[in-house]
Design a protein around this nucleic acid. Structure first.
Lengths: 219, 219
DNA sequence: ATTCTACCACCTGTATACATTTTGGGGTTA
DNA sequence: TAACCCCAAAATGTATACAGGTGGTAGAAT
């Protein structure tokens, strides 16, 4: 994260939304943002349009406001991601080149090299993301990668990670191992199934996290 | 299609691209477009940004140009659509309300009411699209609908329809009938399978169309 | 003839000024 | 008191002016 002055209004506003500096349903007024970030309305408008297409910001009439979100929405997102990851895994199994496989294996090895106690949550999440991205790439379907990107954007708004315990971490590694094998064997059905189950588990962990949060701070 | 003056620059440019008035790789220069459509650069810029996120237009450095496309890409799109329609059908089977089912059945009936000889291709395509949209809606997954919308945008660039023969039309009706039944029975597996096969067939028809076109006008 | 340089034309990025629409409030009336 | 209307203020939509950067070309020198 570089200094504010070097960041585009798009990223500035985006970060502010994620940090809840602008809470859900907050009105995003062009003039106010322009003053706040010391640029003219023009770049602000473009940033808002972009955030709108990403789905972080919504129009109400002509006004823009921060999109609301409900924790339940997370389940929807995981569900769709599950379908897409299944599709990507299947397709990757059928279409991967030797190079694709090498890149996937290397990403997997990077995750194996991480010591859970020493690494930061961000590091682990990044390594995990890289692994999945390499699987996507191996599908050789630009359309599929585009959709996966689009879905994952929404996850930003939900804090935390599903990789937070050593048990889960080693479980993830085991499942990735299986996924790599299935892809290597060009076994599309298995690969799809593994990816799907993998996501289903992440979803369930999220549900637990949500319920725990509810019990600590009930409405 | 209303008169040009009433259409937003976004739609104007979009139509022009689809009509190949701006061929693939054509530079889209803001000033030129502004003069052509009698508006200032500001709305033109917004239109281009929007088209960029839709994927009809691409940046090369800071220049914008019409995105290239290859007929083979169509297969990718159908493949991804197939996954998504399968997901939507499965989810709709599990989650539909009585109202959802009624709307689906009504859309299906509308298609049955169409006489192939009398109806235009556009009418048939529209009725077909409505049917599918109602299935999507019955999934109650906003994220899924969003992705389907996003994928279908790209189909615009490829002319023609897969519903062009009476045989195919009645085949489509039969498969829709089966899909409605599976959804009604809340049989997710069948519904998913039917939707998936349905799309696979459309893909194959596209391949035939492409090959035929190649033979008539070889490179 | 070829290459290097300098300049000019063009295009995008940004700011600002102007136009239009929407909204919220206050006062009047039924 | 509630409803309606009108007006003022504010926010968005649009146009225009200005700045910065890039590419291409003409001309000169080798």
């Amino acid at each position: 994260m570089s200094s504010p002055a070097l960041m585009s209004p798009y990223l500035m506003i985006r970060n502010a939304i994620i940090a809840q500096e602008f809470p859900p349903r907050a009105q995003l007024v062009e003039n106010a943002l322009a003053k706040k970030y010391n640029v003219s309305r023009t770049p602000i408008r473009e940033a808002l349009r972009r955030l709108e297409t990403e789905g972080l910001v919504e129009r109400y009439g002509s006004r823009m406001q921060v999109r609301e979100y409900r924790p339940e929405e997370m389940l929807d997102l995981y569900e769709v991601r599950s379908f897409l990851e299944e599709a990507a895994a299947k397709t990757a199994a059928l279409r991967h080149t030797d190079m694709d496989l090498m890149l996937i294996e290397r990403a997997h090895q990077s995750m194996l090299d991480i010591k859970f106690e020493e690494a930061s949550a961000a590091q682990m999440a990044a390594a995990n993301r890289t692994f999945h991205e390499r699987v996507w790439a191996a599908s050789h379907s630009a359309a599929l990668v585009d959709l996966l990107d689009r879905i994952l954007v929404h996850f930003i708004r939900y804090p935390g990670t599903t990789l937070s315990t050593p048990e889960r971490w080693s479980q993830v590694l085991k499942e990735h191992e299986e996924l790599v094998s299935a892809i290597r064997d060009r076994d599309a059905e298995s690969a799809g199934k593994i990816a799907s189950v993998h996501m289903e588990e992440a979803k369930n962990i999220r549900i637990e996290m949500y319920i725990d949060a509810q019990e600590i701070a009930p409405s």
